[in-house]
Design a protein around this nucleic acid. Sequence first.
DNA 1: ACGAGTTTGTGAAATCCTTCACAATCTAGG
DNA 2: CCTAGATTGTGAAGGATTTCACAAACTCGT
Lengths: 220, 220
Amino acid sequence: MPHLFTAARARPDPVKRIADPTVRRLSLYLRFLEEFEGAGRTTISSGELAQSGHTTPAQVRKDLSSFGSFGKRGLGYGTHDLVAHIRQILGLDRTWRLVVVGAGRMGSAIAQFPGFRDRGFHVVGIFDLDPRRIGQTLAGVTIADVCHLEADVQRLRADIAVLALPPAAAQSIATRLAQAGVHALLDFSTAPLTVPAGVTVRRMDLAMELEVLSFALTNR
Amino acid sequence: MPHLFTAARARPDPVKRIADPTVRRLSLYLRFLEEFEGAGRTTISSGELAQSGHTTPAQVRKDLSSFGSFGKRGLGYGTHDLVAHIRQILGLDRTWRLVVVGAGRMGSAIAQFPGFRDRGFHVVGIFDLDPRRIGQTLAGVTIADVCHLEADVQRLRADIAVLALPPAAAQSIATRLAQAGVHALLDFSTAPLTVPAGVTVRRMDLAMELEVLSFALTNR
DNA sequence: ACGAGTTTGTGAAATCCTTCACAATCTAGG
DNA sequence: CCTAGATTGTGAAGGATTTCACAAACTCGT
């Protein structure tokens, strides 16, 4: 039962169910559009966007048309307009407060990832278990003890948590975060998490991707 | 019913096209199976596997049946057998030689990722541009100058390359790697790569995943 | 050895996603 | 204003993946 959501309620949004691949592509389009905008282009066609994103013009138009009609026939899309629209669709017209749980090598790298802040994702908390790490500062944030996770996460008003932990610890932390009101998790550990309804999890599974590559190389 | 799958090695085999999601799930199943095997279980049913992997029993059986019939009706699958079969299907019955290009924070974390070696992925080379990093040692490998990338990659007989680079550099490195005979890339940069036919690329796009989470939170 | 109870393997149906094809609408240029 | 050329928006078709449903085949207890 891979059902993640049920229905919209907070926003008066009659937009039908949006496919995950569509959202991913929007994120891509946005990046190209910002590049195009930076280069001074004022309009762009679905064909040009498609080329940048390794897809087809029809796909681009379909993706956008699920949310409204932003283009001008005969002309294309206004870069500036479309950037604004996609940012709004993706919820990027605000900032999001991030916590990173696990300050090992991977957690540290993530917390200091350049371009987070620029794109509106602010790391407001970092947690670890190891007393030697607690108290150190990363990217301007002091590493806190994971034992106060719930209280801290609420105090910090965190929206999203990034988990960079050993698989054994991930599930328990995920449950605690969900309990504390964090509704979005980005999981770098290798075990899929079980979370309450209403919490979205995305996995970044290094080992799995390598195994997919192994398969591709083997059956080339 | 009579599915013979022994010919997958020598020749371009007649096994029908395998969907990407199927391969991903196989990788997942494998992990659970190894856990079950470690716990001493000798058989497992599609239902149990499905629960572990957040999918359905029918899905599990369909996935496996694309490659042969490994189970016993009324009993389930032999854990040990199935582990062996999936490892063979995914090409994990051998080791793969990895290079990491980019030894910044992310590249270093990846190169030292625990569990690579255990799963048969050996980091045999690390490259960077920065003279201050070249010559340092990470995970037992000395960081080399990226300017000899092609020759080194061939000397090291690298199968897979992990790219942990600024987006501006990624495309040129990808092209050089493809030229040098690396047919599988795992890309952590934010721009999708264009590569020659026969080269497989998988993307790990942190920013994109965060934006998908932003969308999910916004349209909850 | 038998019947009750499981569980697989797999066509067929359903669902999800992408591509096609074309009318509608715009710009540009005279 | 009118025509040629370009591009969007979208219903319908097509393809891909997941789910359903059930016969076949096995185990186990008696």
